[in-house]
Design a protein around this nucleic acid. Structure first.
Lengths: 335, 335
DNA sequence: CCGATCTGCTAATACGAATTATTACTGGGC
DNA sequence: GCCCAGTAATAATTCGTATTAGCAGATCGG
């Protein structure tokens, strides 16, 4: 590999010192440092002619900055399987990274040598190459989080915000508010007995939805029931509750439910209103125009990068919940 | 930002020199270099306890390697608009990168300061941070290519393979062979008059398809006609040719064509057989089971990374066309 | 006309890891 | 007692850029 151009080479050609080249490049105009216009032009000309570009590694080493943002995911970023969960986040992340002039480093090598799940800190982690990083994924390793905090590596977690021996900077979706709004809408439409279909626990994202549901039914003083999505006959189970509106944690479950309802003569939304709490994590294609809300994934990605640049520059532990856009839809009607 | 651990720190803690730490880390066992088992263990223990990780920038500077592969695209990698062109390539790239233990650097900042199109070499390009890079995109800048070659930066182009003052390493799809195979199939089924619908020129990918078509009709001694896809009334135009089978360069055009045919009472494939030459670049959703072929995008991504690692290690200018899988489909029948 | 200030630039060093050259020590052979 | 081989480790240098301190020469004030 032909040795590439260095500032030393440029300096030689322009008849100045390497220092001068560096100063011109970073066009410093401090009172401390002075370069005559002629010299500056001469150096710039050589740089232009040779197409010299500074070595990013050396740069990073010297000044500690890179304009590279790391992106870490616990699963493959580009899942072969689905129309995928990560994609919208990445769209937002890329957009914003482009705006702030940063490149993205995807930690694809992170799968530990053991072949197990991905870990941020493996033997030769390249995390530190980036100025900071965005964490994506429903299951973030607590030890990794703790380590990030301990090492004071700037990062922002998207979605997850578990505490890990210290506050975690994050961008999330405001599920409680969105869920509350949907409950309110149902109540306004005359529903008095609602059922929540979903795990209601586990990941924060689902726990949040359920908590929002619970708080809202209490606030509006209506009946709020809960059903696990994996009961043997969900259709009957929902019917038995006597609820007039069902809130589905998972859109995929709602799709199956509608399928079953159609087969067994239950009219949606005539006999039962349906609400979905956010877009599907499991891929599903449907033409049903569910009433529900959109998780602002793209916006979350964007915001994560914005916050990250802030953290990199001035530290802090930003925590933000982004509003979900409500979808009018046609599966929730008055009764 | 708390200063992070360095080999110097580890050395101090273990009571050895920085050199020793480095040697232990790269566990060199040359006859030139000897470390006693006790010392080695002591150093390793400190490393384990502190969780020390080498600074990738310093590493890169010293040894010139990074295990980072750059990925350059002329458009956004994650287009907000479509179920997107790049995705399958990226799936393959990521898979293979993970296997070879490399991280991926996406040059998202590459949009030149002018706000114009992306360029690989802008003022502070981070290209050199990577050991080499994969180029994606239908339109690769010739100057960029020339520069990559001149600077001897290892790279592999996916799809494009324009000459740029020197041979370009690439992975492509074997359109000519696949197109020939489809023509052959049509001929075997009794078709004697075929029409190619598409630009037939411009990008290599389309030029290749048309060239394959031309060569095949010559080889099998049948009639081969050509129609631009944007004629005012494509349906009539195709009808007028008297062809019994139409080969569509773009699946999107074929979908529209079928639509029009249905409306105007032309039976597909009863009255006219249809063949599509590769999956859509414009996103389109259809349930039609077209006869045609699949562009092995994912495999191309994989292979590009494989070839790139080869180039990085031992140079060369690999050039490969990957076979396209034929799709039996139901739009091409005998007559 | 001598010190003070200003101007334009460079030498030296730091950054963190890898590598090369070199030193300190131990035993063994004669 | 001296030289040599072998072992274990270190000092010094390298990579390319950024920064700090400082050095000549010119200009100015008194």
């Amino acid at each position: 590999m032909a040795r590439r151009l260095t500032q030393q080479d440029i300096a030689r050609m322009a008849g100045v010192s390497q220092t001068t080249v560096s100063l011109v490049l970073n066009n410093r105009a401090d009172s401390e440092v002075r370069i005559s216009p002629e010299t500056r032009q001469r150096v710039l000309r050589v740089i232009r002619e040779t197409g010299y570009i500074a070595d990013p590694a050396a740069r990073r080493l010297a000044e500690g900055r890179n304009r590279i943002l790391g992106v870490f995911t616990y699963e493959a970023v580009f899942p072969a399987t689905s129309a995928d969960f990560y994609h919208p986040f990445l769209v937002g992340i890329e957009e914003c990274a482009e705006e702030v002039g940063c490149d993205l480093l995807l930690f694809t090598s992170a799968r530990a040598s053991g072949g197990g799940r991905r870990r941020i800190f493996n033997e030769d982690s390249r995390v530190r190459l980036a100025d900071g990083c965005v964490l994506l994924g429903r299951m973030v390793d607590r030890d990794d989080l703790a380590r990030l905090i301990a090492d004071q590596i700037p990062f922002v977690s998207v979605g997850r915000r578990d505490d890990a021996g210290g506050p975690v900077p994050y961008v999330g979706a405001d599920y409680p508010t969105a869920t509350r709004a949907l409950v309110e809408r149902a109540v306004r439409l005359g529903h008095r007995r609602l059922v929540y279909v979903g795990t209601g626990g586990g990941a924060e994202s689902t726990a949040d939805r359920y908590a929002g549901f619970r708080a809202a039914v209490a606030e509006f003083d209506v009946e709020g029931l809960h059903l696990a999505p994996d009961v043997s006959d969900l259709l009957d189970a929902v019917r038995d509750t006597g609820a007039t509106a069902a809130f589905f944690e998972e859109q995929a479950d709602a799709v199956l439910f509608v399928q079953a309802a159609k087969e067994r003569g239950l009219a949606i939304p005539g006999d039962l209103s349906l609400v979905t709490l956010g877009s599907a994590t499991r891929p599903v294609h449907t033409d049903i125009d569910f009433t529900g809300f959109l998780i602002p994934r793209r916006e979350m990605g964007r915001r994560a990068v914005e916050l990250l640049t802030g953290v990199i520059e001035s530290g802090g532990t930003p925590q933000e919940l982004l509003p979900c856009e409500l979808i009018e839809g046609s599966t929730l009607i008055g009764r």
